Simulated scan of single mutants.
Amino acid sequence: MPAFHHISLLTKNHKQNVAFYTELLGMRFVKNTVNQENNRMLHYYYGDYTGSPGSVVTFFIVPHLGQRYDHNHFLATIGLNIPTNSLSYWQNRLENKGILVTRKKNQIFFDDPDHVGIILTEVAEAPLKPELQVKNDIPADKQILGLASTQLHVSDLAATTDFFKKYLDWNVIDSTITLSKTEHLELYQTNTTEKTRMGRGSIDHIAFAVKDDKALNDLYQKAQEQNWQIEEIISRGYFKSLYIREPGGNRLEFATMSPGFTLDEPLESLGESFALPPFLADKRAEIQANLYPID
Rank of each mutant, 00 (worst) to 15 (best):
I138Y: 12
N72S: 12
Y69A: 11
Y220F: 14
E232Y: 00
D212H: 09
R103W: 08
P53F: 02
P83L: 02
L263R: 03
K211H: 11
H115R: 04
R245V: 13
G237D: 02
P113W: 07
L25C: 07
P278A: 15
E37S: 01
Y167H: 12
D156G: 10
E186Y: 12
N92G: 05
N92Q: 13
V134F: 08
H205T: 09
G249L: 09
K166R: 15
Y89V: 13
L80K: 03
V154D: 10
S86P: 15
K181V: 06
V56E: 08
E186H: 14
G248Y: 02
G249M: 02
L276H: 05
A124M: 12
L87W: 05
T176M: 06
P53S: 08
M257S: 06
E122S: 13
H64W: 06
I203D: 02
L10Q: 11
G54E: 03
F163C: 06
V116L: 09
A148M: 13
G199I: 06
H205C: 03
E231K: 02
F60W: 01
N136C: 10
V62W: 08
E125H: 08
T58V: 10
N39S: 10
Q91N: 11
Q36G: 07
L252N: 01
G248S: 05
A289M: 06
H6Q: 09
Y188R: 09
V172S: 09
N72L: 08
A19V: 11
F109H: 15
R103C: 07
G146V: 00
L87Q: 09
I61Y: 00
N17K: 02
E253K: 00
N106R: 12
E194P: 02
A209V: 03
V123P: 03
E37R: 05
R245Q: 15
L24T: 12
L75T: 07
E225N: 14
E183F: 02
T84E: 15
N96T: 12
N191A: 13
L9Q: 09
E232N: 13
N38M: 00
Q151C: 06
I294Y: 08
L187V: 07
I287E: 08
Y44D: 04
T178Y: 07
L187K: 04
I82G: 01
I173V: 15
R284I: 06
R251L: 15
N217H: 12
E186L: 15
N290F: 00
V210A: 05
P83T: 01
I287Y: 07
F239D: 05
A140G: 14
L280A: 06
T77C: 10
S149H: 11
A281T: 10
N171G: 12
I119D: 06
E95A: 07
F274D: 08
K283Q: 10
D141V: 01
H6P: 04
G146I: 11
S258A: 15
F254W: 12
F163G: 00
N96D: 14
W170N: 05
L185S: 02
Q288I: 01
T58H: 09
K240F: 04
T190L: 04
I177V: 13
A285Y: 00
F279P: 08
V57N: 02
R284P: 01
E253S: 02
H5R: 09
K12S: 12
D114M: 01
Y44H: 01
K222P: 13
D141I: 03
P63N: 07
D212S: 06
S88D: 15
N96I: 10
V123M: 04
G98I: 09
E37H: 05
H6T: 04
R103T: 15
